[in-house]
Design a protein around this nucleic acid. Sequence first.
DNA 1: AACGTAGTACTGCATCCGCAGTGGTGTCAA
DNA 2: TTGACACCACTGCGGATGCAGTACTACGTT
Lengths: 197, 197
Amino acid sequence: MRQNAARRTALLDAAIEVLAHEGSRGLTLRAVDTAAQVPKGTATNYFAHRAELLAQVMTRIQERLTPDESQLADTMREKPSADLVATLLKQLLGRMRADRSSWLALMELRLEATRRPELHAELTRFFTAQLDANVGFHLDAGLPGDRVSVVLLYLAMLGLIVDDLTVPDLLAPYPLEDLIEAMVARILPPSDQGGER
Amino acid sequence: MRQNAARRTALLDAAIEVLAHEGSRGLTLRAVDTAAQVPKGTATNYFAHRAELLAQVMTRIQERLTPDESQLADTMREKPSADLVATLLKQLLGRMRADRSSWLALMELRLEATRRPELHAELTRFFTAQLDANVGFHLDAGLPGDRVSVVLLYLAMLGLIVDDLTVPDLLAPYPLEDLIEAMVARILPPSDQGGER
DNA sequence: AACGTAGTACTGCATCCGCAGTGGTGTCAA
DNA sequence: TTGACACCACTGCGGATGCAGTACTACGTT
């Protein structure tokens, strides 16, 4: 098993691109070699099985999707309000648009996890941690709304993202930014301060 | 090209099972033969390409997901209200649970559509029609909430379903029925009576 | 010089698709 | 009733593809 971390990351990034552009169907060790522009057989040296590749892709995606700490801190300087929540969600949408490959690959992994117990366990752990973190962040920051609000926003945003990834034209009549504002306005309780409606 | 409709449907149903259990990766004409327990080569006689199989699977799923007309009529006897909307959404959840294979296959098709223009067009048409129908139904029935409400409910339900299909344990702390009631309560306007446009 | 890694080439294996040929069954007309 | 025809199920093979794995060489660093 090779140890070159940079090369491994390059292979994983290539795997993400393959997943996004060719789908789970096209993800083979050879395809990763090709996408990463390394000699055939290289991926075999770094990942024993396809399963191992998938597992490591998972954690790589996790790295890539983690929001930038400083930008987040910057955004949070504002006073907590429904508007601020909308801003945060729009930033999430922006991150998604900036790295669609990771999100598409994550969708592929979701489906693949349906048939792979280890991957399923890892994905569940990942999403659970993320949702819990979201809830905790929201409450700690004093943003309006309770746990259930956060979960509902999470679900609506997930639906929004899934649609935008796979059938973007569907929501064309409803600009996504407007939808985000609407969902915040309706799901969160009317806030005493700020918050247009 | 063979014309036996019953056999074709059986093959398509088998293809849906393959998609759900093996994923897009495992969907080949031969795999469909095996799943349908028909001789190898049969699927080739019914579908020229894999693409044609996918297209027909799409319409077959559409058939399978169409709600039962009479049950719907039965439900709609009640007076229009937010509660009624919650009931309808719970019935949707029930249908999903009763035919997870179709929903999983549909998710696979969504991703596959990312790479197949024809399929993408068809999927967009399908979802657009469905969303429009939902909006129309909602408004015509005098249910509370406007177009945007319906879209938001659609998105939240999509997120709910995606999560339940792929990482069901994630939402274990939040019973889905409760989530549905919460989303209806918050997304729809406080129901005095009837819906405004 | 030795070890780890990159790069290359080759082998073996699995599987897939497409086609063509064969046999069986149902239908229609005489 | 019988015979001809059309349709369909099924089998088996040819050709091709594509993948994983491995052995071997080259390189560079220590």
